[in-house]
């Protein structure tokens, strides 16, 4: 009778050890894989050719020594972002021209791009250049465009471009909020469209 009322307790002391073993197993097998990256579009296989003024092209080249050249001049790779910023935001078209860019804050030099929509960045590279240099260049190009877009987004909607994208992804599908945010993003994108060409240039 006494035994039935008080059955011996099961020792749970080893529970922690078993849990630890399982924990370590899952710790080891887990790979918190990231899917972060830079999204780009490749050039179309047989794209039509277009005639472009030389002033609207920024030629960036990565040579076999992993050096970055802009318009055949060696530059420090850290300066690339600012060079791209100046080039895209130049807005060199005259005030009576149809391409006049009223929101540009650049130097309005007649030797640089007419307007952000006309500005094309040409990126070429040597086969012996290293991939991390290439990715750094791509990263800086996107960085330059994103900071321009953020500037315009703050000016127009008092919200930064990255926050705008975040809000868009958070908003409920098919809600009027989402539609509004989408049109805002599209407006900003159309102000500074990313035009990076990796095609061969025919001079």
């Amino acid at each position: 009778m006494k035994h039935q009322r008080n059955p011996p307790e099961v020792n749970a002391g080893s529970m922690a050890d078993i849990a630890f073993l399982l924990l370590i197993f899952f710790l080891v097998t887990t790979s918190l894989e990231s899917n972060d990256g830079l999204q780009r579009m490749l050039p179309r296989p047989n794209a039509e050719t277009a005639d472009i003024y030389e002033r609207n092209i920024l030629r960036i080249n990565i040579n076999a020594q992993n050096k970055v050249l802009v318009a055949d001049n060696l530059i420090n790779s850290k300066d690339l972002k600012n060079i791209v910023l100046d080039f895209v935001d130049n807005g060199g078209a005259q005030i009576d021209s149809p391409f006049y860019c009223e929101y540009c804050e650049g130097d309005r030099s007649s030797y640089s791009s007419d307007s952000p929509a006309k500005a094309i960045i040409s990126l070429t590279s040597s086969r012996n250049a290293s991939y991390d240099v290439y990715l750094d260049v791509q990263n800086q190009l996107i960085d330059a465009y994103n900071s321009l877009r953020t500037r315009e987004a703050i000016k127009r909607f008092t919200i930064s471009y990255s926050d705008l994208l975040l809000e868009y992804h958070k908003a409920e599908n098919y809600s009027s909020e989402k539609v509004k945010l989408k049109s805002m993003i599209e407006e900003i994108r159309s102000l500074y469209p990313i035009k990076i060409s990796e095609a061969e240039l025919k001079i």
Partner: peptide, 29 residues
């Protein structure tokens, strides 16, 4: 990161030939 661009460019050219134009260069934030 140590790969040379030659093979990367070849892959990109092949992808664009079969019309897979959307690429994502995986990078750590």
């Amino acid at each position: 990161e140590n790969v040379k661009l030659g093979i990367v460019n070849d892959v990109k050219k092949t992808l664009s030939k079969i019309n897979m134009l959307k690429v994502n260069y995986i990078a750590l934030k």
